[in-house]
């Protein structure tokens, strides 16, 4: 069985203008939503208390909301979590009252209505911790970008490094934009997912770049133009790209289906990341590299004709 029967090279580079426009529009939309709607940060970032409780029967959310509001701890949100028996209660941080007292008083109020309610999870985060997480998260993103660029610049060429990072950041911004648009909760686990996408989607660009470099070295490709060489590289790696991503996506979907609420955000971030990862590495990174003016001489140093890719 062979899924991808491509007779001749697909002229990806000639679609450059179209794909760049699509990317730019989605990117700008993502930025727009990030600024207008903002991310729905989880309690880990904002500080506050989150409680997960489980009832024996389906929970009466309205009643729970009334009971929690009656305690006057500020604006509380009550929502069901996956099943109708699991309930998530979110409370803002409050001065002068410890999280311990807070969760106990809420539980007291809930137990008064239904003694069978079980406290499954409490999470309390002070406001100062959240700020640190944001700075640490941003530092991580910057370090990842710099590290990857440095490696690619050494291994390939700076033009490839720059285009790979732009393609990557494009994926990351679009994931964040989706989280902003749908107001999905942005937790630390999601951040881990987003940063994993950063490492994963650069793989894609690396595979294509590797092929481009190899093509530059091939005698048969000597008289081809740069964009033809890139087209050939993308076409040749096409089946691998789709199969690999399909497999990774199968794993991620499995997490989405079986992983429960704790892994939900993580799996969603990766799904978006994988879909846009395919697109961006093929149709964003390469056109940018071309546009930055990659030519054969950048990849092959004339005085050192040794081909190290073929070890």
């Amino acid at each position: 069985m062979e899924l991808f029967r491509i007779k001749r090279d697909i002229p990806f580079m000639s679609y450059g203008r179209l794909t760049t426009t699509i990317s730019l529009v989605t990117f700008l939309l993502a930025v727009f939503f990030l600024f207008t709607k903002g991310l729905n940060f989880s309690v880990e970032f904002t500080g506050g208390t989150v409680m997960e409780v489980q009832y024996r029967q389906a929970a009466n959310l309205g009643d729970i909301r009334n009971r929690v509001d009656a305690l006057k701890f500020g604006e509380a949100t009550v929502q069901s979590l996956g099943t109708s028996r699991d309930v998530l209660i979110r409370l803002p941080s409050k001065q002068g009252i410890t999280s311990a007292q807070l969760s106990e008083r809420v539980m007291g109020a809930l137990k008064a209505a239904d003694p069978a309610v079980e406290l499954r999870k409490v999470e309390f985060v002070g406001p100062s911790v959240g700020e640190e997480l944001v700075t640490h998260g941003l530092t991580a993103v910057i370090i990842v970008c710099l590290g990857i660029m440095l490696y690619l610049a050494l291994r390939f060429e700076w033009r490839f490094a720059v285009s790979a990072i732009i393609a990557n950041m494009h994926d990351v911004v679009i994931i964040l934009g989706c989280f902003a648009f749908f107001q999905w909760e942005f937790s630390l686990t999601v951040l881990a997912g987003v940063l994993a996408v950063l490492g994963y989607s650069v793989n894609e660009s690396v595979v294509v770049f590797d092929r481009i470099r190899e093509n530059f070295r091939k005698a048969a490709m000597r008289n081809k133009s740069v964009s033809e060489i890139i087209d050939n590289a993308i076409t040749a790696t096409m089946s691998r790209t789709l199969i690999t991503h399909g497999c990774t996506e199968a794993m991620v979907l499995s997490m989405l289906v079986f992983g429960g609420p704790a892994l939900h955000g993580f799996a969603i971030a990766l799904t978006i990341g994988i879909v846009f990862g395919i697109y961006s590495s093929v149709l964003v990174a390469s056109p940018i590299a071309l546009w930055l003016g990659v030519v054969r001489e950048h990849m092959i140093k004339p005085q050192k004709p040794k081909d190290e890719a073929v070890v």
Binding site: H136, A140, V144, I148, A192, G199, V202, V206
Partner: peptide, 25 residues
């Protein structure tokens, strides 16, 4: 060559997460 390159870039991302991440990350 390709496997090495792609794994090293992924590893760079992983190490940065390890150094700057906290808790679940």
């Amino acid at each position: 060559a390709t496997i090495l390159d792609s794994n090293i870039t992924t590893l760079i991302a992983g190490l940065a997460l390890l150094i700057f991440g906290s808790g679940p990350v």
